[in-house]
């Protein structure tokens, strides 16, 4: 499969990339790791006249953990996240989720920013970012702005990012020390998107679950924050009744389609199962 011809650009800095996008308008697309865009180009579902490759822009790489605030450069690869000690210590759910994306070769090129930015409902990191209440930095010719991950996803491949903007960084407050977390993903095989997946981050103090965020992957045309599911646990002892209520609340907002991974009814039912597993494991890991 040969993609349509394009002009290739490798700007050395962000300003150069923004300028190229402004200059070429909707003829131009940004490529990060390429593992979403290049398959689309090979199928000719994407035919950019200009490809703006972000790989040479050093300022988009790397992870910083400073006083509880985590900043991940958009071009940081999924493999780098898995290997980043400070990030894994502060927020282990990111490593756990990244390890379930595709396979080792893909994670060597696939980036955090690409996975979060493009709005593919099958991507794993968006739900984690919803659970973390992360903020995305978008930069374009009009300047820089921040959008909450919870406001970013509008539908399949439809996001709050405007043409000409680049997602440059993701920032969030690390969950408190001793928090519990889990990313449970059911998939048919290595490399597949989730049949259903859930991210759970919670904190406990004494016998009380003081906070819980729950988000879902590939169970609608966008990642879903299961706010009522989280609320069902927060402020309770997170016993059997509350867990069941949280699972029911998550299942109630799932709107999966029937596809090769299963019928809509099966995937809806699976939502409750996977959320339960994630909650139970998160509770077990909480200090």
């Amino acid at each position: 499969m040969i993609p349509a011809a394009f002009d290739y650009h490798r700007p050395a800095d962000l300003a150069g990339a923004v300028r190229l996008l402004a200059e070429h308008g909707d003829e131009a697309l940004v490529v990060a790791g390429g593992h979403s865009l290049i398959p689309m180009m090979k199928l000719r579902m994407a035919q950019p006249g200009h490809l703006v490759d972000l790989r040479a822009i050093e300022s988009l790489r790397g992870v910083r953990v400073e006083g509880g605030t985590v900043t991940i450069g958009a071009m940081t690869t999924q493999a780098e996240v898995i290997a980043s000690g400070p990030l894994v210590d502060a927020c282990p759910i990111l490593r756990e989720a990244a390890l379930q994306i595709a396979d080792p070769q893909i994670r060597n090129l696939g980036t955090v920013g690409g996975n979060a930015a493009n709005g593919d409902p099958g991507n794993d990191l968006p739900a984690v970012m919803l659970a973390l209440d992360a903020r995305y930095t978008l930069e374009g010719a009009g300047g820089r702005r921040e959008v909450a991950a919870r406001e970013y996803y509008e539908g399949a491949f439809a996001t709050a990012r405007e043409d000409g903007e680049i997602l440059t960084a993701i920032r969030f407050e690390a969950p408190p020390a001793g928090h519990g977390c889990a990313y449970e993903k059911q998939k048919r095989k290595v490399g597949d998107y989730a049949t259903a997946a859930a991210a759970v981050i919670l904190a406990r103090s004494g016998g009380t679950c003081t906070h819980a965020s729950i988000a879902l992957t590939n169970l609608a045309d966008r990642p879903l924050l299961a706010a009522e599911a989280g609320a069902a646990l927060a402020g309770t002892a997170a016993g059997e009744a509350e867990i069941a209520a949280a699972c029911a609340a998550a299942q109630a907002i799932a709107e999966p389609v029937s596809d090769g991974r299963g019928s809509a009814a099966f995937r809806t039912r699976l939502t409750g199962v996977i959320v339960r597993r994630a909650i139970e494991r998160a509770l077990a890991t909480a200090a």
Binding site: Y8, R10, G34, H35, I38, P39, L51, D53, R55, A79, P104, Q105, I106, N108, L109
Partner: peptide, 12 residues
């Protein structure tokens, strides 16, 4: 790094 060479362009 191990990569899949069907998913990388010559230009890259």
């Amino acid at each position: 790094r191990s990569v899949k060479s069907c998913m990388v362009f010559a230009a890259q």
